[in-house]
Nucleic acid binder design. Structure first.
Lengths: 247, 247
DNA sequence: CGGTAAGTTGAGTAGAGTCAAATTTGGTGG
DNA sequence: CCACCAAATTTGACTCTACTCAACTTACCG
């Protein structure tokens, strides 16, 4: 019983949707060819666990499509999401053998995986790749630190508003120009996943979403389809008064 | 009026206390010589601001001695610490011009600074340095994610216990063998800095420290000198039941 | 020997959590 | 197409942890 399928036909890098944003973004054709030799695609259904914390990891890789979460769990079940993985995000750490977090597919997910040992060799030999990985890791660190402010100092209402702003920003559906105007998107997370992201209970998430709807900060169609009539107002509700968010 | 002094006599790398832990840890003599040409020492007094968020940064560098904090502040003054910088930790981000956070010297502080532009050139040309920086950044990202669990899901008592455990681990004064035995150290942070670290108020920090003392989890001599008679118990109080912390 | 900053403690409050029940939704099979 | 089920979500009532405001104590520095 396998948790996933290994696809027989990996995509061509040439028409890969994340070709210019992922760890391979700046590869030349020769470097791409090296990566191509050690890569394979894997797909997961929504809800499947990609990796359990503590498991041996023998691959690293990029999210091609779909959404995954990185979570930590305490012995008594308390759970905190520590990463939200969208297409082009990198999973896994060269130089470490055990997965530090659970990786769970939130939607159907396709990943481009690299066998870990040869990938480590390639980044050792290929500065362009290791430098791209450094750049991506620094961006993730900035995002984690932004998130720490949300977790440590924002109210429940501000937390929800901040999360909606982040998702709106990273979602292609929105028609944002800068921080102005309307945004429309589908929530990729359940209320429970949102609570794990924000360090809240799912009841508090639900109440605050209802409150934001009552106050016309957001409009819902169904449970998941969100319209934000005034994005600047949402940022303000999130405590980001006029500031740009980290993208 | 300058916030710091530029020392005329930078230390020799040869007898530098962080030589084998900092970003330069794996440099060969030639690489060290390159870094040496662009480096200078700066010292700061306790309480001084090293960099303001939003300021132009024209250097990066390593903490040689002392302690600094990375903090984010909201418009209404709410403050969250997002990094604690101990000797050998790296400050600054190649490829970014503006400082994203306030960097504040908590104790007297000495830094080994590199002019930013030439440093960027060196990491571009020197894989050993950029790979060391990647490794350090990945470690910081892990620490930030551990911290996210603390901020999002732990109680005030668990937060304090977790912070004491982290400081004990990173402090040289402790006589720990693994997770066993006694630890002794001086708190490098005020109650207020601890509250900014943990997303609490300083009153709550004080109350929880008093509670841990009443319960004999810790012993205080003065306000800052801490003895932990049973380190495993402290870990347990922090919700880390028997698990190793990220160092 | 004050004076000031740091830390402690107390009393009351508020915001988010807990437990419980109702409601909505999307999918399934008849 | 419709009834029904399980899961997701919403809402209500009550509780409790951590916050706020305030007073007091301790430690340090000149």
């Amino acid at each position: 019983m396998f948790a996933d399928q290994i696809l027989q036909m990996p995509q061509e890098c040439g028409n890969c949707p994340i070709r210019h944003r992922a760890v391979c973004a700046r590869c030349d054709p020769d470097e791409l060819e090296q990566l191509d030799r050690i890569k394979y695609n894997r797909s997961f259904q929504a809800g499947q666990t990609v990796i359990w914390a503590g498991d041996r990891m023998d691959f690293v890789g990029s999210v091609i499509s779909g959404i995954a979460t990185l979570t930590q769990t305490m012995e008594d079940g308390r759970t905190q999401m520590v990463g939200l993985l969208l297409p082009s995000d990198f999973v896994g750490r060269p130089g470490r053998n055990e997965a530090p977090y659970n990786v769970i597919a939130t939607s159907d997910l396709v990943m481009c995986c690299f066998r870990k040992r040869p990938f480590e060799q390639i980044i050792h030999d290929t500065p362009r790749i290791s430098q791209r990985l450094l750049e991506m890791t620094l961006d993730e660190l900035d995002a984690a630190r932004e998130w720490m402010l949300v977790l440590g100092r924002k109210t429940a209402r501000e937390k929800i508003a901040s999360l909606l702003a982040i998702i709106a920003r990273r979602s292609a559906l929105s028609k944002l120009s800068g921080s102005q105007g309307e945004a429309v998107f589908d929530l990729p997370l359940t209320r429970e996943a949102m609570s794990d992201y924000l360090g809240l209970t799912l009841e508090t998430v639900s109440r605050q979403i209802s409150a934001l709807r009552r106050d016309n900060v957001i409009t819902l169609r169904g449970k998941r389809h969100v319209t934000i009539p005034d994005f600047a107002r949402l940022l303000n509700e999130g405590g980001n008064e006029g500031q740009a968010l980290i993208s």
